[in-house]
Design a protein around this nucleic acid. Structure first.
Ligand SMILES: [Zn+2]
Ligand SMILES: [Zn+2]
Length: 368
DNA sequence: CGGTGCGGGTTAC
DNA sequence: GTAACCCGCACCG
């Protein structure tokens, strides 16, 4: 992925190659540095060839999380855990939501579940879904390596994702929950239900954009409570997705309620003093469109021809997309993750920025 | 149900 | 030998 603004680069790179002192280690070294100068806050979207050293206390690191859809891969080395990127699931129709956003679903990690997922249909236009595989590492999926050593957890990634970011794990979970609730809710005959389970199960779902709106629905008011908690302590951990990229929250509370204006936090907060702890989220300005079609789930035959995304922004042509289902009101579903692990900013951790209250952050979001 | 780890085994280079 | 990857198994929330 190209990094647009420098600040973006900074945020990620900074930690790895901070201030000159090159990261002199490699995940394969017999001995890894134990005189670590600085520990990094968990990085939710590590990209490019970066390295990070996390605290062995960091829960996200312990679980080898990433907001990229990474699946375990066997490298026959129990000391080093290796994972490879699954890419992102896109709509074959390349449809767009009302507010012009694309559908980037999170590939299921489980093989079986992923196959099932690919048979489902687009939550936005009901068109067929397609898996856009990752080829950011020499034509192969980007790989991530994890190694626990001493009081640290070393992380190293190889390759730069050449596809948009998928929904975070939390968003994907929310999506599943909503759809589930939606189904259970529908007062239809068992027979119909059956059908929905098959078809609908496949797609008719609110899109990423809709999520926040749904959650903001009247009953959604269950959330506030959580809001308070999160973001409080100076050291907490947040599951990878936790309110990162496309937080279902920002708009939640007071919004123009209207659905008209979908969330506009497309590009924002890039500049925040520090991306909130553990969450470096906020989409990167790069999460951009990267159309690149013609690349599906075929092995990297001859890779070398790189096609670039069509025009800057493929016009939304969604095609005949009778907005799927009207899924409305659905509440909670989004459990407040534990917390977050400090703040990610680099250059040293910043403690709370929370002192002012969670709202601070929220107010920043709309910052479009 | 699906995320995560593990490790045997295969295949291509 | 290295790397990608398939496959089943176990554990867990
Ligand atoms: Zn679609
Ligand atoms: Zn990738």
């Amino acid at each position: 992925m190209l990094k647009g603004a420098d600040d973006v680069v900074m945020e990620q790179e900074d930690s790895a190659s901070r201030h000159g002192e090159m990261t002199s280690w490699d995940i394969n070294d017999i001995k890894l540095p134990q005189d670590v100068r600085q520990i990094d806050w968990f990085q939710e979207w590590p990209d490019s060839y970066v390295k990070h050293i996390y605290s062995s206390e960091d829960k996200n690191a312990q679980r080898h999380h990433s907001s990229w859809a990474m699946r375990n891969t066997n490298n026959h080395n129990s000391r080093i855990l290796k994972k490879s990127c699954l890419g992102v699931v896109v709509c074959s129709n390349d449809c767009s939501t009302l507010d012009g956003k694309k559908i980037y679903l999170r590939p299921a990690i489980c093989d079986k579940a992923r196959q099932k997922q690919q048979r489902k249909c687009c939550p936005n236009c009901s068109g067929p879904l397609r898996l856009l595989s990752c080829r950011g590492h020499g034509g192969y999926p980007v790989t991530n390596f994890w190694r626990h050593e001493g009081q640290f957890i070393f992380f190293q990634s190889k390759g730069a994702h050449d596809h948009p970011r998928p929904e975070t794990k939390l968003e994907a979970e929310a999506r599943r929950s909503i759809q589930k609730a939606q189904m259970a809710f529908s007062p239809s005959s068992p027979r119909l239900k059956r059908i929905q389970e098959i078809e609908s199960l496949t797609g008719a779902m609110p899109t990423r954009e809709a999520l926040p709106l749904l959650l903001s629905e009247p009953d959604a008011y269950v959330l506030p409570a959580n809001f308070g908690r999160r973001l409080s302590k100076s050291s907490q951990e947040l599951t990878p997705g936790s309110r990162s990229g496309q937080p279902p929250y920002p708009r939640a509370a007071g919004e123009d309620g209207a659905c008209g204006e979908a969330p506009t936090w497309s590009r924002m907060a890039r500049v925040l003093p520090v991306t909130e702890g553990g969450r470096d989220h906020f989409f990167g300005p790069d999460a951009g469109p990267l159309g690149d079609d013609s690349r599906q789930e075929n092995p990297p035959l001859a890779y070398g021809g790189r096609r670039l995304p069509p025009p800057p922004y493929p016009a939304p042509h969604g095609g005949p997309c009778p907005a799927a289902s009207g899924a409305h009101r659905l509440r909670q579903l989004l459990a407040p993750p534990g917390g977050s692990e400090g703040d990610g900013g680099e250059g040293g951790r910043r403690m709370g920025l929370n002192c002012c209250g969670d709202d601070t952050v929220f107010n920043l979001y709309p910052l479009r």
